[in-house]
Write a protein that binds this DNA or RNA. Structure first.
Lengths: 269, 269
DNA sequence: AAGTGGTCTAGACCACTGG
DNA sequence: CAGTGGTCTAGACCACTTG
């Protein structure tokens, strides 16, 4: 309640808790404010997700303070805080004490290593450089259209990259993206090592989650040549679909890894 | 403050917030209660972890209500709640509205599937039956002693199991445990499919976390025979160290998986 | 000094569960 | 019905950052 009309009337004023004035007489602001079945903090959470998705608060920006958000949304600071906690836990926001709450750019995010889990047998863990082998455009196969949730035959771009660890070709990446989502990707011939950052900066596509399926596969003759190993060598295949918010597929990537000197690390708590 | 002496004087009374009486005059219980650098809710968290570890609250039991804990520990209900939130998030406790907060038994825990991630290409996901192939006792190798944090040459037990998915031998498990930690494991000749539950029920060893390293490997002649495949077939090797609280190693397991019909699934958020 | 997030409290009412 | 966890509020003080 206490709509705090006027002063905080931002552009993106929300259809949030429409009416619900007065009608309560408890001595001091004690009032159940939930509107339907869904808790208030979830509504705040949803509202903030919307704003992040629509780049009302773009990457790198500071969002309004907890007090300001509370006033604007007509809830208590504690409720805003609870919603923020969830978003911070997911890595969608970062708090800096004494400064404020920020929308992280992708390299600040856990994402950098969240999406790269190969670790050397000696503990080494760095994002290795990638060499672009090929880049072509074509009509999506059935599998590609399924994975990327595209209409059949949609134009897609296919990239082939080799990553070098310790100067040895170690990972072979086959990347497929929709031309409609990331138009002209890799046309210049060169591409940054860190593609997700590129997607965010150049296309405003922020990858926030991914699903990976791992299996073992034998190196084909072509793959073996690129990885400088014998055909038939066992490789770790990582089949990954990367999503932006709302589980919209952005990229399909199949990586073939030579695990003779590196493992894929998983920490289960 | 307000020690609530007497009535809640449980057996396991804690050395918690030793002194710190009076000395504050705010009109109504407003008082910074933190003792050192560490927040109160973390101290509560630590105290509860202790009790779980020492089985003061054994698996399956209900722990005292938030109000009771608050009174006993001399903090507010909100602070207890915050500590409980963390433990619940980790899966160490489970809340049931209207009932109370419980120590989950292992099969209630996420653990069952937290530690088994093979999923069929058709989406099938079940814990498959295991057949015990061999069980021997011997002196720990250097690697085994390192992994399990044991003195050199300690007695260890080595199990070899085959798991059947769809009646096909698909996973080969080499398990190593310290005899001192799990004495007599598998001596009867038969063992349950779900070893972690067995560890908890028969030995009071509760596995709460694990670290896995995945790589590709070629099937040896012996492995190939057990898995009924051709030698040299690429297999997914999962090298896993399982811990109980405080990161004490309990089990070292190397699984070799035939991934022709199943993948290892990872969800990254 | 002002403003931010971080911790803590007290107390209200709700929704759910069991007897 | 009483007891439990679930939500929400208001307000206090702390620790940290910038100016």
């Amino acid at each position: 309640m206490f709509r705090h009309a006027g002063e905080t009337d931002h552009a993106s004023r929300l259809a949030f808790l429409p009416g619900l004035e007065g009608a309560l007489m408890a001595p001091r602001g004690r009032a159940p404010r939930r509107i339907g079945q869904v808790p208030l903090y979830e509504m705040v959470d949803g509202e903030l997700r919307q704003r992040l998705l629509q780049k009302v608060y773009p990457p790198g920006a500071m969002i309004p303070s907890e007090m300001k958000l509370a006033a604007e949304l007509g809830v208590s600071q504690g409720t805003v805080r609870r919603a923020l906690n969830g978003l911070v836990d997911e890595g969608l926001l970062t708090r800096r004490q004494g400064l404020g709450t920020f929308v992280p750019e992708i390299e600040d995010r856990r994402s950098l290593f969240l999406f790269f889990n190969m670790i050397g047998h000696d503990g080494q863990h760095e994002l290795p450089p990638a060499r672009l082998e090929s880049c072509e455009i074509g009509a999506a196969t059935q599998a590609e259209a399924d994975r990327l949730a595209l209409p059949p035959q949609s134009p897609v771009r296919r990239l082939l990259r080799v990553r070098l660890l310790r100067d040895r070709p170690t990972i072979l990446e086959r990347i497929v993206v929709a031309e409609a989502v990331l138009p002209g990707l890799g046309e210049g011939g060169a591409l940054p090592d860190h593609l997700f950052r590129h997607y965010e900066r150049s296309y405003g596509r922020t990858v926030t989650s991914a699903e990976e399926r791992l299996r073992a596969a034998a190196a084909s003759f072509g793959d073996a040549e690129l990885l400088e190993i014998a055909p038939g060598t066992p490789l770790l295949e990582i089949d990954r679909l990367a999503f932006e918010a709302e589980r919209t597929p952005v990229e399909w990537r199949r990586s073939l890894c030579n695990t003779s000197a590196h493992d894929y690390l998983v920490d289960r708590r």
